Each structure stands twice: as structure tokens, then as C-alpha cells.
Deep mutational scan, measured.
Amino acid sequence: KKKPLTQEQLEDARRLKAIYEKKKNELGLSQESVADKMGMGQSGVGALFNGINALNAYNAALLAKILKVSVEEFSP
């Protein structure tokens, strides 16, 4: 059984999803295209955005690059 995410991890996910929602049209992104760039399925990206799975440093760095932001913008 997976450990529930901490409040901090949930807040990171909320900020990440908000940045994605704000930038997806400008950058021409969908959850599917983000998933392709990350080498995972769309459901995996959804789980990161919705605070189901915790972000690790690798995925955080990859998402920051895809969204053209710094990791600190969603994970201070």
C-alpha cells in the first residue's frame, strides 16, 4: 500500500497542475503529449498532477523543462 502524500507534496501537485492549466494552450500541450515527453502513460501524468503519486526530483525537473518554468515555481 502506498503512503499518502504529505501536505507539502499535495501543495506541490496543486501548484504544478495550476501551472500546467495556465500554460498548456500557450505551449500546445495535452496530458498525452506531456506523458509522451516523459516516457510514461497519460494516467501517470494525471496521478502526478492530481496528487495521487508523489513527484520525484527527476519527474519534477522534466516537468519544469516541458512547462518552461523552474522547479521552485511549483515545489519551493
Rank of each mutant, 00 (worst) to 15 (best):
P4I: 14
V34P: 01
M38E: 02
Y58P: 09
A60C: 03
L5D: 05
E21K: 08
L27F: 03
G39A: 08
L62P: 05
K65L: 00
K22N: 11
N59S: 12
S70I: 00
G28I: 03
I19C: 08
K37H: 08
M40F: 07
E21S: 08
I52T: 14
R15F: 00
E26N: 07
E8D: 10
R14F: 07
D12S: 09
N25L: 12
A57I: 10
D12T: 12
L62N: 10
K2I: 12
T6M: 08
A64M: 00
N56V: 02
K24L: 01
E72Q: 12
L10V: 12
K22W: 03
L55K: 01
K68W: 00
N56C: 06
S33G: 13
L48K: 04
V34T: 04
K23C: 02
M40P: 02
A13I: 03
D12Y: 03
N25C: 12
Y20P: 04
P4Y: 14
R14V: 09
S33I: 12
A61I: 09
G44N: 14
N59I: 08
L48T: 04
S75D: 02
G41D: 15
K1M: 12
K3F: 13
K68A: 08
M40Y: 08
L62G: 09
V71F: 00
M38H: 05
A18P: 01
L67Q: 09
V34I: 15
R15T: 01
V34R: 01
A64F: 00
Y20C: 01
G28T: 06
A57D: 12
A54L: 01
Q9A: 05
K68G: 12
V45N: 03
L63R: 05
E8F: 04
Y20G: 04
E72A: 15
E72P: 08
E11P: 01
E73Y: 01
E26K: 10
K3G: 11
Q42R: 13
T6V: 03
L5Y: 05
L27Q: 07
Y20F: 13
D36Q: 15
S43L: 10
L62Y: 06
F49A: 07
K68M: 08
G46M: 15
K2G: 13
L55Q: 05
L27P: 04
F74A: 03
L63A: 07
K23Q: 05
L55N: 01
G28N: 12
Q9Y: 00
Q9N: 02
L5K: 02
S33A: 13
A47H: 10
K23P: 01
A47V: 01
K68H: 13
L10Y: 11
I66L: 09
E72S: 14
A61G: 13
E26M: 13
N53W: 06
K22P: 00
S70R: 14
S43K: 14
V69Y: 02
V71D: 06
K68D: 13
M40N: 06
A35L: 02
I19Q: 04
L48F: 05
E11V: 07
N25Q: 14
A61P: 07
F74Y: 06
K68N: 13
N25T: 12
L67E: 11
T6F: 00
A18F: 09
G41H: 15
R15P: 01
V45K: 03
K22H: 10
L67S: 09
G39I: 01
A61K: 13
E11C: 11
K65W: 00
K3W: 06
M38F: 01
K1L: 07
N25E: 15
L27S: 05
K37A: 14
S30D: 12
I52A: 11
P76L: 00
E11T: 07
E26D: 10
L62H: 09
F49P: 06
L10F: 10
L5R: 03
Q31S: 11
P76W: 03
K2F: 13
G51Y: 00
S75L: 00
D12E: 09
A47K: 15
L16E: 02
T6I: 02
R14T: 08
L29A: 03
N59P: 02
S30V: 05
E8P: 01
N56P: 02
